[in-house]
Protein backbone atom coordinates (compact mmCIF):
# COMPACT_ATOMS: atom_id res chain seq x y z
CA UNK A 1 0.00 0.00 0.00
CA UNK A 2 1.53 3.29 -1.05
CA UNK A 3 0.87 6.23 1.17
CA UNK A 4 0.30 9.52 -0.51
CA UNK A 5 0.26 12.61 1.52
CA UNK A 6 -3.02 14.28 0.80
CA UNK A 7 -3.11 18.05 0.82
CA UNK A 8 -5.19 17.91 4.01
CA UNK A 9 -2.50 15.79 5.53
CA UNK A 10 0.25 18.24 4.59
CA UNK A 11 -1.75 21.18 5.83
CA UNK A 12 -2.40 19.45 9.14
CA UNK A 13 1.26 18.63 9.54
CA UNK A 14 2.17 22.22 8.84
CA UNK A 15 -0.35 23.55 11.30
CA UNK A 16 0.74 21.04 13.88
CA UNK A 17 4.35 22.03 13.43
CA UNK A 18 3.40 25.68 13.63
CA UNK A 19 1.42 25.25 16.79
CA UNK A 20 4.28 23.31 18.36
CA UNK A 21 6.73 26.05 17.45
CA UNK A 22 4.33 28.64 18.78
CA UNK A 23 3.84 26.84 22.05
CA UNK A 24 7.58 26.24 22.40
CA UNK A 25 8.20 29.94 21.87
CA UNK A 26 5.43 30.69 24.30
CA UNK A 27 6.89 28.29 26.84
CA UNK A 28 10.15 30.19 26.89
CA UNK A 29 8.38 33.53 27.23
CA UNK A 30 7.54 33.49 30.91
CA UNK A 31 7.83 36.57 33.07
CA UNK A 32 11.60 36.55 33.56
CA UNK A 33 11.50 39.32 36.12
CA UNK A 34 9.14 37.37 38.35
CA UNK A 35 11.30 34.31 37.74
CA UNK A 36 14.36 36.30 38.75
CA UNK A 37 12.80 37.40 42.02
CA UNK A 38 11.63 33.87 42.86
CA UNK A 39 15.03 32.45 41.95
CA UNK A 40 16.81 34.97 44.15
CA UNK A 41 14.47 34.91 47.08
CA UNK A 42 13.58 31.23 47.24
CA UNK A 43 16.15 29.13 45.36
CA UNK A 44 19.25 31.20 46.15
CA UNK A 45 18.23 31.91 49.70
CA UNK A 46 18.03 28.20 50.52
CA UNK A 47 21.22 27.42 48.61
CA UNK A 48 23.11 30.13 50.45
CA UNK A 49 21.79 29.04 53.82
CA UNK A 50 21.85 25.27 53.39
CA UNK A 51 23.34 24.07 50.17
CA UNK A 52 26.84 25.48 49.84
CA UNK A 53 26.32 28.78 48.09
CA UNK A 54 24.24 30.20 45.29
CA UNK A 55 23.90 28.55 41.89
CA UNK A 56 24.31 31.19 39.19
CA UNK A 57 22.33 30.61 35.98
CA UNK A 58 25.44 31.35 33.92
CA UNK A 59 27.25 28.30 35.30
CA UNK A 60 25.45 26.07 32.79
CA UNK A 61 24.36 26.17 29.17
CA UNK A 62 20.77 26.43 27.99
CA UNK A 63 20.88 22.79 26.89
CA UNK A 64 22.12 21.72 30.32
CA UNK A 65 19.42 23.68 32.10
CA UNK A 66 16.70 22.39 29.78
CA UNK A 67 17.80 18.82 30.45
CA UNK A 68 18.08 19.51 34.18
CA UNK A 69 14.61 21.02 34.36
CA UNK A 70 13.03 18.30 32.24
CA UNK A 71 14.61 15.49 34.25
CA UNK A 72 13.65 17.33 37.43
CA UNK A 73 15.72 15.40 39.93
CA UNK A 74 16.68 18.24 42.23
CA UNK A 75 19.36 17.55 44.84
CA UNK A 76 20.08 14.07 43.54
CA UNK A 77 16.45 13.21 43.23
CA UNK A 78 15.49 13.95 46.84
CA UNK A 79 12.53 15.98 45.67
CA UNK A 80 11.50 17.44 42.33
CA UNK A 81 12.29 21.08 41.68
CA UNK A 82 8.65 21.61 40.78
CA UNK A 83 7.88 20.98 44.42
CA UNK A 84 9.88 24.09 45.40
CA UNK A 85 7.85 26.19 43.00
CA UNK A 86 4.48 24.71 43.94
CA UNK A 87 1.68 26.60 45.61
CA UNK A 88 1.80 24.15 48.46
CA UNK A 89 5.47 24.91 49.13
CA UNK A 90 4.83 28.63 48.84
CA UNK A 91 1.99 28.36 51.34
CA UNK A 92 4.33 26.58 53.75
CA UNK A 93 7.08 29.17 53.69
CA UNK A 94 5.12 32.34 53.07
CA UNK A 95 5.21 33.41 56.70
CA UNK A 96 8.96 33.87 56.44
CA UNK A 97 9.46 34.38 52.71
CA UNK A 98 8.17 37.49 51.01
CA UNK A 99 8.46 36.09 47.48
CA UNK A 100 6.38 33.06 48.41
CA UNK A 101 3.85 35.39 49.99
CA UNK A 102 3.63 37.78 47.06
CA UNK A 103 3.35 35.01 44.47
CA UNK A 104 1.22 32.72 46.67
CA UNK A 105 -1.55 32.40 44.08
CA UNK A 106 0.39 32.17 40.84
CA UNK A 107 -0.40 28.84 39.15
CA UNK A 108 2.43 26.29 39.49
CA UNK A 109 3.08 25.88 35.77
CA UNK A 110 3.23 29.58 35.22
CA UNK A 111 5.71 30.26 37.99
CA UNK A 112 7.84 27.30 36.99
CA UNK A 113 7.91 28.69 33.48
CA UNK A 114 8.95 32.10 34.83
CA UNK A 115 11.85 30.57 36.74
CA UNK A 116 12.78 28.50 33.69
CA UNK A 117 12.69 31.57 31.46
CA UNK A 118 15.04 33.38 33.81
CA UNK A 119 17.41 30.41 34.02
CA UNK A 120 17.59 29.92 30.25
CA UNK A 121 17.96 33.60 29.57
CA UNK A 122 20.71 33.79 32.18
CA UNK A 123 22.50 30.62 31.05
CA UNK A 124 26.15 30.68 29.97
CA UNK A 125 25.08 30.82 26.32
CA UNK A 126 21.74 32.53 27.03
CA UNK A 127 20.65 35.94 25.80
CA UNK A 128 21.73 37.64 29.00
CA UNK A 129 24.09 35.52 31.13
CA UNK A 130 23.35 36.16 34.80
CA UNK A 131 26.11 35.76 37.34
CA UNK A 132 25.12 37.86 40.28
CA UNK A 133 22.16 36.91 42.36
Amino acid sequence: MTKKLSSLNVLSLCLLACSLVASAAHAADGDWKRGRVYYQKVCTECHTAKAGGPIAPNTRTMADWTKYLNTDKHAKGKEPLKMYVSREYRANIKATNKAAEKYADVPDEQLFNDVKTFMLKGAKDGDSPASCL
Binding site: K3, L5, L8, N9, S12, L16, S19
Partner: peptide, 12 residues
Protein backbone atom coordinates in the same frame (compact mmCIF):
# COMPACT_ATOMS: atom_id res chain seq x y z
CA UNK B 1 -6.77 10.18 3.60
CA UNK B 2 -7.33 8.37 6.83
CA UNK B 3 -4.00 9.68 8.11
CA UNK B 4 -5.14 13.12 7.11
CA UNK B 5 -8.24 12.87 9.25
CA UNK B 6 -6.16 11.49 12.07
CA UNK B 7 -3.73 14.37 11.83
CA UNK B 8 -6.59 16.84 11.80
CA UNK B 9 -7.99 15.22 14.91
CA UNK B 10 -4.65 15.41 16.66
CA UNK B 11 -4.34 19.03 15.68
CA UNK B 12 -7.85 19.82 16.86
Amino acid sequence: MRTGIFMAAVLA
